[in-house]
Design a binder for these strands. Structure first.
Lengths: 199, 199, 199, 199
DNA sequence: TGTTAACCGAGACGGTACGTCCAGTCTTTCG
DNA sequence: CGAAAGACTGGACGTACCGTCTCGGTTAACA
């Protein structure tokens, strides 16, 4: 019976949020500024998101969904590829400042933690699962014996890859350059190979 | 010639900062509140630290310095030990909320980035170097051929360990329990062993 | 298109300002306190007035506008009447403390000087003009020959009356009692009569 | 920096106070700034004066004591002379801002009121008394019949002169130029003459 | 094809915290 | 041993955003 919400406004707000993150970073980003950039009233922002954190989750989630894992022919190449593209994503200013700040906020806000996991983190596990399946198909890794153990190992590998890249880029503050990617990939692939020798 | 700064006030401010972090978390921590808890005027806070970030760096840095690496007899045991104690540190509320927020801030503030690295991150590399040296003494790892390559590998191992733990605990939000620590340690030690077979 | 400013808030702020002047005087009056008394946010105060001085001008101006000059039948009686009511106004605590402080501030702030003159001082010249016209109608003073000279004399009389009362009450700090009012009135009326003898 | 510094320091502080009044005006004058200008510690300032008001009273009092009343040969000339020199004094920036502010403060502080009267206001009554005596000697005014009434009239004349000048210069904000001084003098002298006709 | 209710922009509102400045006091060190 | 230097507590400043609330004006689905 009533007028529906404007899809254009939604897009404008998310675009404005990313633009503001690039220019100002998380801590200087204000909802008033986002509203002004989007040509929208603050009210409209608050009608859709309960606050800055939720808005930013939605604004950056799409960036993470752009990650892909083309088949590069070998487990090592696939790992190197995903590491490189994840590092490139984290080197973008909006992603870096937002991801860490959201995680920081989420330590005090279980709702936010769930939202981040659902919208950002867990979705990327697909990359690990895909790479793993491909490696198994190639015979580089043994097939899953126990599905529970397999899931656990996938989670571990995900934490190792994502964690190492995050730490390298954001905490250590050094670039994930070719030398580093190569060394990390070698370490991980060697570890996986040594742990699960072909039967 | 003038009155010196009060050491008692300094201690009180850092203690108050940690207490406020535990109770309120990073984003709700205010310098006015810290000053009030410390029984100190805001002026005194601002005389010593330029802002919230710098204060919190100093307040949490000492917690990271408490990490130690007792000799547990084998490389695997040493890695497991450091992973466990680092995870325990990150599971403390003040550390978790502060570390991620500081890293987020630091993406926009090179001065802060340096401060964090100097006071928090780089100091912990000693744990890796120590563990590595011990493993070499035991014959678990080969001696350093090229010192530059050795330093690079130590940095890599540091990013992998710290990154995996941070990601597991803070991003994935799952506990670093025995099963996980064991699996991670096995993966890492296997990787190190496979990469650098004893000559 | 937007929400209009609240008239109730405006009234509350001016009332609170007068109340705070009475209790605290100019120098201990703080805008935070006024806001609190008025049940209003500091922001609302600053949205309408640029600072303490401007607010107080508006708060006290209405008090000066309450001065009136009923026809008391003779020039001397009219002068005595206005002197008494002006003295009574200056003996009110809010008026005394505010007027002098505003004048002090205005010596450094031309904008404030204009604001005071427009809102407080010049408006009271009406009393002199009215009394003068009445005296002329009664034949106590000769009609205006030169309108410019007449305006100048009105200004002079205004400065003499207002200045004498202000100085008596606020600088000398003595009451403007009947004896003083009578003596002053006699002096002024005698001077006016002697200067402009009926043709 | 030994002890015989005291007298020099006192002079330096009062000079610095006047200089700061000229530059900054009353409301932006700070004791820290005065101390710095005088090359003195804040402590030294507080040892001698209880606060800003008391310091400024002492700093400006000497300026008022410089007023003099040379014999200009007639009552009218003497009145004109004192009006001109008082106006010139009030047109100096340090005097104007300080006098009004002190009076404003004094409405809430009886101690300050007494201090101002003793050090600034009452001392200038000598000018009225001197001029009056001179006019009586010249036969322009009748000798005192009743000493009490004479004192009262002197006070009245003082309030009228000082008040009119203060109001003209500081409240009305117009210059006390020749035309105004002449008109005011004429009015006052005419009033005095008409009130007390030579017997 | 009007009605009309939800949406929209604008921006005022009560609040909270900011980072700065100054008041006035206290503590050291120097001359 | 008094004065400089300046750190200390305390509190107001004026600003910036927060998240909420009124407004008048504008759609778009329904009657």
């Amino acid at each position: 019976m009533a007028r529906p919400r404007s899809a254009a406004a939604e897009r404008a707000m998310l675009d404005a949020t990313r633009a503001a993150l690039v220019e100002l970073g998380w801590s200087k980003l204000t909802l008033g500024d986002v509203a002004a950039r989007a040509g929208v009233a603050k009210t409209t922002l608050y009608r859709r998101w309960p606050g800055k954190s939720a808005l930013v989750v939605d604004a950056v989630a799409v960036l993470f969904d752009e990650l892909e894992l083309p088949d590069r022919g070998s487990l090592a190449a696939d790992v190197g590829g995903v590491v490189r593209s994840f590092a490139a994503l984290l080197e973008r200013p909006e992603t870096a400042t937002a991801l860490m700040a959201l995680v920081a906020e989420s330590t005090r806000d279980p709702g936010l933690r769930d939202r981040i996991r659902t919208a950002v983190v867990d979705r990327q596990k697909r990359l690990v699962l895909e790479g793993r399946a491909r490696a198994q198909a190639r015979g580089e890794l043994p097939p899953d014996a126990d599905p529970v153990a397999a899931a656990r190992q996938a989670d571990l590998v995900f934490d190792v890859i994502a964690g190492a890249v995050v730490h390298r880029v954001l905490v250590s503050g050094e670039p994930a350059d070719d030398a580093w990617v190569t060394a990390f990939t070698a370490l991980l692939v060697a570890g996986l190979g040594a742990l699960t020798p072909p039967g």
